[in-house]
């Protein structure tokens, strides 16, 4: 059954991808990218990766599309025809493809339970998570404790992207006069989206928080939650315009969220060191190591959520704050 699904979805993926590359209208490409992302996410879900599917949905279909669109609004929507370089590209691509296909034949079949990946490290996680962490979602356990250091790194990748976009787009942190002069935006003239959106926003936020705090029990966690909550705020700013959105969540607060989130994660680790453990060894925080780990994980997941949410918002606003008018005079 799974295989049938998978084949169906995968074929659609390929078709979509071809369409994305073929289309000369960037706008269409971006919209198709969102389909691509949805398909990918469904595919992940079919392949038993619920957490990843949720992330891909929230990040890929939601945020990425929005950021792409906001960038498109500032640049161009039409790709100019250009045929140079195809030969080389095809050669390079062909070589790489044959390399990968060559590799395929010794790979374990999809779903093969005897594959090496299922024999070595992973069983430890599956066997011990309940005992060592006290909650069922193994992905969250690996993410936040066994490989918590990776996650820390990832938070800082997001942080880097955030400051990078702010730096490159030279968006001031804090509300400077330059950014208030923007002409009115938003969909406030569209009654239906506005009203529905206003109803929806709190529920998205609540759902995001739910995802945030149930990461230990079901698919979810800081990343997904951060992305979902950010989506809520983005929806709000789409509806009400930049200014209103910035009034509700000022730039400083966005950046503050990123910084606090990142620091929160880091400080928990440092606290563990101070308490006599290794970095990010939550078990030393309290007497009962299982409870201690749970508390530690809740805190760091909150940090992750804050950081991702703040970063996505900052990035979005950095793009959104540059109107097309600014573009023209800066040339």
């Amino acid at each position: 059954m799974t295989i049938v699904f998978a084949i169906f979805l995968l074929t659609m993926l390929v078709i979509t991808a071809v369409a994305i590359v073929q289309s000369s209208n960037l706008f269409v490409s971006v919209m198709l990218t969102s389909i691509f992302s949805l398909l990918m996410s469904t595919n992940f879900f079919v392949l038993d990766a619920a957490d990843v599917a949720l992330t891909e949905a929230a990040v890929g279909a939601g945020i990425t599309t929005v950021i792409f669109l906001s960038a498109l609004a500032l640049t161009a929507t039409q790709e100019k025809p250009n045929r140079s370089g195809r030969g080389i590209a095809l050669i390079v691509v062909g070589l790489t493809a044959s390399l990968i296909i060559y590799a395929t034949f010794d790979k374990p079949r999809l779903g093969d339970p005897d594959a090496p990946v299922h024999q070595h490290v992973a069983p430890y996680y599956l066997d011990n998570t309940m005992e060592q962490m006290g909650f069922p979602n193994v992905v969250t356990a690996v993410l936040s404790s066994y490989r918590g250091y990776d996650t820390l790194g990832e938070v800082f990748v997001v942080f880097a992207a955030c400051i990078g976009v702010l730096f490159i787009l030279d968006a001031r942190t804090g509300t400077g006069p330059k950014y208030v002069t923007r002409k009115m935006t938003g969909l406030r003239h569209h009654l239906i989206p506005q009203v529905v959106g206003r109803i929806l926003v709190p529920f998205i936020v609540l759902f995001g928080l739910y995802v945030q705090f149930h990461g230990e029990y079901g698919p979810g966690g800081g990343f997904q939650a951060g992305a979902i909550i950010a989506t809520a705020f983005i929806l709000y700013s789409l509806l009400e315009g930049e200014q209103a959105a910035l009034r509700a969540v000022p730039r400083s607060a966005q950046l503050g969220l990123v910084i606090c989130g990142a620091l929160m994660f880091g400080m928990v680790g440092v606290l563990c060191m101070i308490m006599g453990g290794e970095f990010l060894d939550y078990s030393v925080l309290m007497e009962n190591p299982v409870t201690a780990r749970q508390i530690g994980i809740i805190v760091i997941e909150a940090g992750v959520g804050m950081a991702v949410c703040g970063a996505m918002l900052s990035i979005f606003h950095a793009f959104a704050a540059r109107s097309a008018e600014d573009t023209d005079e800066a040339v």
């Binding site: 969102s34 879900f45 669109l69 079901g218």
Partner: peptide, 22 residues
């Protein structure tokens, strides 16, 4: 795992509205 579907239901709107806004 219905959470996922819930997330879609909530997020799906954003893309379309973004098109409109920009």
């Amino acid at each position: 795992f219905l959470d996922l579907a819930l997330a879609y239901a909530l997020i799906n709107l954003v893309g379309v509205l973004a098109v409109l806004e920009f």
